[in-house]
Design a protein around this nucleic acid. Structure first.
Lengths: 188, 188
DNA sequence: TTTTTACTATACCGATCGGTATATTGGCTA
DNA sequence: TAGCCAATATACCGATCGGTATAGTAAAAA
């Protein structure tokens, strides 16, 4: 078993269930069955381990969402694709998305927000660009792309939160409902 | 200045900006200009301090929302009142709501979730009861009160999050938009 | 006046924090 | 074979963690 990957998966599990700040490096290496110098060899610091975790999973999410968000004239279809891209990712990386959501909402001075903010900015930027292009075909959307991006992501995260609390399953029907709920805010 | 209240306000500021786990008791007492035994005299433990903070502010929020959520035949009006109760509270207790949101999304094994979950359960219960009563007058709502409560609170928290990031201001118009967005999910 | 009680400071506790100096191992390269 | 380098362990670092034993003070109650 590869030590580096093992450390990453143990850290993800612990961070997502107890929070980055309350998990000690000692706890991670104990659970991984190794010692500290091994962890520090691969990641340099606790923060470096967090950064590696974020980079690994966010790059997959961003790629997937970027592809889904490529607007080509049909906004409802694009929105549906984006939601399903999120749902697909979350179903595969439940723990990671739980951790990432917690980081989004952590305090403005926290290390976790600082580490994750650039990825969330990128995510928002992708959505903004999608809405910006779409507003060329929908005059009443002009100048609102930033707000649409935030609101859309917010609705998606609501559904994901329901999923993480085992209240719903993430299927195409739920994705449709999410798009529908959001769309009402645009077209009326 | 009263020591107890001073500790509470310093702790709230630090917890909300850096996170409960990453703030040490020493840091709190230094900022408050006192020493540890004083803090431990009033609150018994760091966790006791957190509990006191939650109790103090949540009791105000719950009272306010409970009153707004008393359904008396006009659901849109009731929803509007509830949203405005949240908005009013958040405008006065920005830091507290930021901290409470962070706790909502903290890991399932975290101390912060354990400390705050009962208050959020109570909040959800109030909303559930409101939707349950309303479903007596709206047949198509039957059996969905739990989900409505989660979704409604989710939308409210989306707007509050936008406010905390200085993207919008919380006024009656925004409250109306929140109600409108939610209502679409019910009536269609 | 004496006693009690609430409050606060000094100084300290063992445990854990993130991180590292040093040494050893094993495999690949020159 | 000689040398190098990635990878790992033992043992340790100073700092900080949450928490407390002890003592003092000041005000209220007896």
């Amino acid at each position: 078993m590869d030590n580096r990957e093992n450390i990453l998966s143990v850290a993800l599990r612990l961070f997502s269930s107890s929070g980055y700040d309350s998990v000690g490096v000692q706890e991670i290496v104990d659970e991984a069955g190794i010692t500290k110098p091994t962890l520090y060899h691969y990641f340099g610091s606790k923060r470096g381990l967090l950064d590696a975790l974020l980079e690994k999973h966010f790059s997959a999410l961003l790629t997937s969402v970027r592809e889904a968000a490529s607007y080509q004239g049909d906004l409802p279809l694009t929105l549906q694709k984006v939601v399903e891209a999120f749902f697909q990712f979350v179903k595969q990386q439940k723990d990671f998305y739980r951790m990432q959501l917690a980081m989004c909402f952590s305090g403005p001075e926290s290390e976790t927000l600082e580490a994750s903010s650039r990825y969330n900015r990128e995510l928002i930027l992708i959505l903004e660009e999608m809405f910006l292009k779409a507003s060329g075909d929908h005059g009443n959307m002009k100048g609102r792309h930033k707000r649409y991006a935030f609101t859309f992501l917010g609705i998606i995260n609501n559904y994901i939160t329901l999923y993480l609390g085992n209240h719903i399953t993430l299927d195409s029907r739920e994705a449709f409902l999410a798009v529908h709920q959001f769309s009402h805010g645009i077209y009326s």
